Simulated assay, not measured.
Amino acid sequence: MQIHHLSETNSVLNHFLGQIRNVNVHNDSMRFRRNIERIGEIMAYELSKNLHYKEVEIQTPLGTKKTSEIKDQLVLCSILRAGLTLHMGFLNYFDSAQNGFVSAYRHHPNNDDYFDILVEYQAIADINDNYLLLLDPMLATGQSIVAVFNKLMERGTPKEIHIAVIIAAPEGIAYLEKHLPDSCHLWIASIDEKLNEHSYIVPGLGDAGDLAYGNKL
């Protein structure tokens, strides 16, 4: 797996990462959503450097100009519900992309720390021979992304697979490396220290879905 760790180089990305982690601004859900969206825009820009382009000639009011545009057909697929704001950041830059949404969540059958991943709702464009961008803000254990990936592969074979997460734990990265093809690209804004005993990222930022959309039952 090819790993792209974006916060290793200082940029405004780190400024936004600090804000989404800060408990002193967590009560402003609109600011949290906007910062996740802006992080998505920055990640989309960085990822765009790995895409393929074609030369085109455009007409201006005063003449013609040769330039380039994205050649690849992209399919953005986010994992509900936390992935929605990240999805919008990517869609702001890849505005002609096709889209998909999949629900995946931790199911605790015994009401303890053990869980499995349930993948239910799926609405997604054709991924066959296209460029799949799978989006999820948090990479904790990696089980949700792998479960969604396996479901998507039942629909077709993408030309390339890119996974974009904002905050990742080393354990989740290792899990993806073990269960996903070596040809996958993993884009990470920031790598944190570890998972705690409840499989949450430390220091992390809390529950991204709750911070963006309110507490769930």
Rank of each mutant, 00 (worst) to 15 (best):
S7Q: 02
D207L: 03
N22A: 10
K54G: 15
F90Y: 10
D95W: 14
N35R: 01
Y175W: 09
N150W: 02
I39P: 00
L13A: 02
L17W: 00
T141M: 04
I191F: 01
L74R: 11
N22W: 00
V102D: 02
D116R: 12
I58P: 08
F101Y: 11
S199T: 08
I201Q: 05
K65D: 10
V202P: 01
H185D: 08
D28T: 12
T141H: 06
Y175R: 10
E55H: 10
A97V: 13
N110I: 04
I166N: 00
N128H: 07
L86T: 08
G172D: 03
Q19S: 12
G100A: 05
N111Y: 05
L51Y: 08
T64Y: 11
L139M: 09
G63F: 01
E8V: 06
L205S: 02
M88N: 12
T141L: 08
R155Q: 13
G83S: 05
M138E: 08
I201Y: 00
R33C: 12
L84E: 14
N92V: 11
T85L: 01
F101D: 08
N92T: 10
M43H: 01
V119W: 03
M43T: 02
A104K: 06
H179F: 10
S11M: 00
F101M: 09
H198V: 05
N27M: 13
Q2D: 11
E41L: 04
N196K: 13
W187T: 14
L51H: 10
G83I: 07
L62C: 06
T9L: 13
